[in-house]
Simulated scan of single mutants.
Amino acid sequence: MTTDNGLSFSFQNLSQRKMSFEDVFHHISQYMMKDETGNYCLMFGTDSQIHTNYTLFITGIVIQRKSKGAWACIRRVIIPRKMTNLHERISFETTLTEEVVSMFTEERKNLLIDIVLPHIYKGASFTIEGHIDIGSGKRNKTHIFVKEMVSRMESLGLEPKIKPEAFVASSYANRFTK
Rank of each mutant, 00 (worst) to 15 (best):
A72F: 05
L96F: 02
M83H: 05
E99A: 07
L96H: 01
S91N: 14
I78V: 12
R81S: 07
V77Q: 15
I90V: 12
N85E: 11
V77R: 15
I79Q: 09
P80M: 03
R89M: 07
A70C: 13
L96I: 00
A72Q: 14
A72L: 01
V101D: 11
R75L: 05
R81G: 00
T105A: 06
T97L: 14
E98R: 13
E93G: 09
V77T: 15
E93C: 02
E98V: 12
N85C: 06
C73Y: 03
E88V: 10
A70Y: 11
T84S: 07
L96W: 02
N85V: 11
F92P: 02
F92L: 15
R76Q: 11
T94W: 09
T94C: 15
L86G: 04
H87Y: 14
T84Y: 07
E99H: 10
W71C: 03
S91E: 14
V100W: 02
I78N: 11
R76Y: 01
E98P: 06
E88I: 12
V100S: 07
C73K: 04
I79D: 08
I78C: 07
P80Y: 01
S102E: 14
T97G: 07
E98Q: 15
A70L: 11
L86R: 08
T94G: 06
I78G: 00
V101C: 09
A72T: 10
A72C: 09
E88L: 13
E99P: 06
T84E: 13
I74W: 00
F104R: 02
M103T: 09
R81H: 04
T95F: 15
V77G: 06
W71Y: 06
P80F: 01
A72I: 00
L96P: 00
W71T: 05
A72Y: 04
H87Q: 12
E98W: 08
F104I: 08
K82I: 10
W71G: 05
V100C: 11
N85S: 05
M83S: 06
F92K: 14
T97R: 10
V101N: 09
